[in-house]
Amino acid sequence: MEDTITAFCDKFFGPALRYVFVPINEALGHIPNWVAGWCGVGIFLLTMIWVGLLLNPKYVNRGRPYKSIWTDLRLWTVISMTPHVVVYFYFR
C-alpha cells in the first residue's frame, strides 16, 4: 500500500516538488554550523525580548493575584528561558 502511494506521488508530484526543494536544500546545506548555533540561542533571546519589552505589560499580567515583582510574568519568562540559552550556548 505504502509503495503504491509513494509511486503515485513520485510520478505526479515528484518532478515539480524536486524542482522547488532541491535548490533550497543545496543552499541550506552550505550554511556553516555556527549560524545554526546562534539561531538556536537567538530564538530564546528574541522570545524573551518580545515578552519583556514589546508586549503590553497590562496584557501580560492581566488577572494576577497581587502586584509584586514575583507575580510579574515577564520575570517568569526570563527565568524559565535562561537555562535554555546556557544549554544552547554550551552545545552550539
Binding site: N25, L28, G29, I31, A36, G40, I43, F91, R92
Partner: peptide, 24 residues
C-alpha cells in the same frame, strides 16, 4: 553526539533547519 544542532544535510531525523523551522 554532543551537538544539539546538526548540519542541514545530515541523514538523521534532526538537522538544525528542521529543528529551528519545523520544530521550534
Amino acid at each position: 553526539h554532543f551537538r544539539l544542532l546538526l548540519p542541514h544535510n545530515t541523514t538523521g531525523p534532526f538537522p538544525w533547519t528542521g529543528i529551528v523551522f519545523g520544530l521550534a
